[in-house]
């Protein structure tokens, strides 16, 4: 692994806001990280009570078939998705890439691909114009974001032009993600996982 100054800065800043950062060499490493994480964790908490009445989402937890747990990985390249699904099958983990509206009750792990990164604030830039990607990043308990070192920049002003170009092309939903879902609304005590992920994992990919 090459320890670039930007990667070091990213890791230092991530540390301060409880983002877990791991350097990985390939997508295969990403998959084994996600599968291991999913295997070790408690199954997700079903957050929807009985009697939910919704016209836009599934009111019941989705049927996982024989699987025990679920990973959402929308936005992966097709062969990557297939590889992950195959590995998941062996572990009794369902790997999905669409239909996330059926998982509003919850899911275990999501894997998403960051398009850029900002080192000085430990930020992953996620183009989540695809609704599945947006939902995956919110409905899981553990969010794994893959950030190629090659797209890491120093500051938000270094990603400005690229973002602006996308925004001028038409409808677009872009998020800076710099931590888990957090709150300090009760007595200013920090608590993670108030609505979205309980934990953010960033995998710095050698590429």
């Amino acid at each position: 692994m090459t320890a670039t100054p930007l990667a070091s800065l990213f890791m230092e800043k991530a540390n301060a806001v409880s983002i877990s950062v791991t350097e990985v060499a390939s997508m295969a490493d990403v998959f084994s990280y996600a599968l291991h994480l999913c295997k070790e964790k408690e199954p997700y908490q079903n957050l929807l009570p009985k009697g939910v009445n919704s016209t836009t989402v599934a009111a019941k937890p989705a049927d996982l078939g024989d699987a025990q747990k679920v990973i959402a990985a929308p936005g992966l390249a097709e062969e990557d998705l297939k590889a992950l699904q195959k590995l998941g099958e062996k572990e009794g983990i369902l790997v999905i890439s669409c239909g996330l509206r059926n998982f509003v009750a919850g899911l275990d792990v999501s894997v998403t691909m960051a398009t850029m990164g900002i080192a000085e604030t430990a930020t992953c830039v996620l183009d989540c114009s695809d609704e599945e990607v947006r939902l995956a990043s919110m409905l899981c308990e553990d969010h794994v974001m893959v950030l190629p070192k090659s797209v890491l920049q120093q500051s938000s002003f270094d990603v400005e032009q690229a973002i602006e170009a996308l925004q001028k092309k038409g409808p677009r939903f872009i998020s800076f993600i710099s931590g888990a879902s957090r709150t300090a609304d009760i007595e200013r005590v920090l608590a993670l996982g108030v609505h979205g992920p309980l934990q953010l994992h960033v995998l710095l990919l050698e590429a």
């Binding site: 806001v17 930020t123 038409g170 677009r172 872009i174 998020s175 800076f176 710099s178």
Partner: peptide, 28 residues
């Protein structure tokens, strides 16, 4: 965005900064 969270809560940035351009995909 650079100064707001720093002044508000002493954070370098909020967990999410969402930028929405136009009417996006909604499968609902």
């Amino acid at each position: 965005v650079k100064i707001l969270p720093r002044n508000a809560t002493g954070q370098a940035i909020t967990s999410y900064v969402n930028m929405v351009t136009g009417a996006n995909e909604c499968k609902g």
